[in-house]
Write a protein that binds this DNA or RNA. Structure first.
Length: 306
DNA sequence: AAGCAGCTCAACCGCACCCGA
DNA sequence: ATCGGGTGCGGTTGAGCTGCT
């Protein structure tokens, strides 16, 4: 039993012991939804009391904003969204709510969790400090191109990202989204908010980002150019050879088909780049420590998923 | 099948800010 | 000026799940 649950189970302070903590029940969710539907949100402390919830206002607000609100998108982040997070985080840092404002239907909590569990995990595996320049260079040089490649693939084939966002109601959604766990920790999955409507919404979101691109030559985000059929530089060569042949396969294996990371990269493929007779500066992936990318066999590529 | 370790994410916590009294 | 309630934000925690041995 958690400390929160322990505190919840009675005590000397009656006022405090009346306040529920921990996972929300179906009844509580229902109370909150019905109350907000009728009276709107805001004044959370008063709302909690008026709705008959034995919760703090903060808890109600959090539950509503992060889980119950009708326009919350469930499922895994699309490549577009991940790309946007990388870009916006490079601009604003840990301003999660600000970043979330640019990803309709996503909460700051979700983005924060994504960053901590996926992005920072990559950084740890690379032995790079996640906020460091080196890490951002790794993101720019490899992760972003990989995401772009994935986005390109998605546009030319059935997009599983839209499937991942297709909200079908909980049981159906769970069945169709192997990596989208609705933990029993939360016994009250939000009722009926996940719908085809939501999937339509996500489609429009994706399309609104469709002209968003990362320019490898300038290492900046820009309008989406035509993607060259032929590799112009080692990165593209790398992507075409490595990604198409290897990452794609490993990707699904490593992430249950829903993640986007660098886990699938194989050390062997570094030879593709090494064989490309070009200096790091020519590769236009200039960093303060320009050769780290190419001497990082033990860093960038040495990941557990290899 | 059981045990273990790692991962995910909902929920909580503490702090800061805003605003009205 | 300051006090207190309401709200928002970023960091952290821990239950439950998954996959590996």
């Amino acid at each position: 039993m958690s400390s929160a649950m322990k505190r919840e189970c009675g005590g000397p302070n009656e006022e405090e012991s009346e306040l529920r903590r921990g996972p929300w029940t179906l009844e509580e969710d229902s109370l909150l939804i019905h109350y907000i539907t009728r009276h709107g949100e805001g004044r959370w402390n008063m709302l909690a009391k008026s709705a008959g919830l034995k919760r703090t206002g903060k808890s109600c607000r959090l539950r509503w904003l992060n889980y119950l609100k009708p326009d919350i998108k469930r499922g895994n982040l699309t490549p577009h969204e991940q790309l946007l997070i990388l870009e916006l985080h490079s601009k604003w840092g840990n301003r999660w709510s600000k970043i979330a404002q640019h990803l309709p239907g996503r909460t700051d909590n979700e983005i924060k969790n994504y960053w901590r569990t996926r992005v920072q995990k990559q950084a740890r595996q690379l032995n790079i400090e996640s906020g460091s320049k080196r890490f951002f260079d790794a993101v720019r040089c490899f992760w972003v191109p990989t995401l772009l490649q994935k986005m390109e693939q998605n546009t030319s084939s059935t997009s599983y990202s839209s499937v991942s966002n297709m909200n079908l109601g909980n049981s159906a959604a769970e069945a169709s989204m192997p990596n989208s766990r609705v933990p029993s920790l939360s016994p009250s999955p939000p009722p009926q908010r996940e719908s085809i409507e939501a999937s339509n919404h996500s489609s429009s979101i994706s399309s609104s980002f469709s002209n968003f691109s990362f320019d490898q030559s300038s290492m900046k985000f820009s309008e989406m150019p035509e993607i060259s059929e032929q590799p112009n530089n080692p990165f593209q060569l790398f992507e075409q050879n490595v990604y198409n042949n290897q990452i794609q396969d490993n990707w699904y294996m490593n992430t249950n088909g829903y993640g986007y990371g660098m886990e699938g990269v194989n050390l062997d493929n570094l030879s593709i780049m090494e064989s490309y007779d070009t200096s790091p500066s020519q590769l236009e992936c200039q960093t303060g420590e320009s050769d780290w990318v190419f001497g990082m066999n033990d860093a960038l590529w040495n990941m557990d998923a290899m």
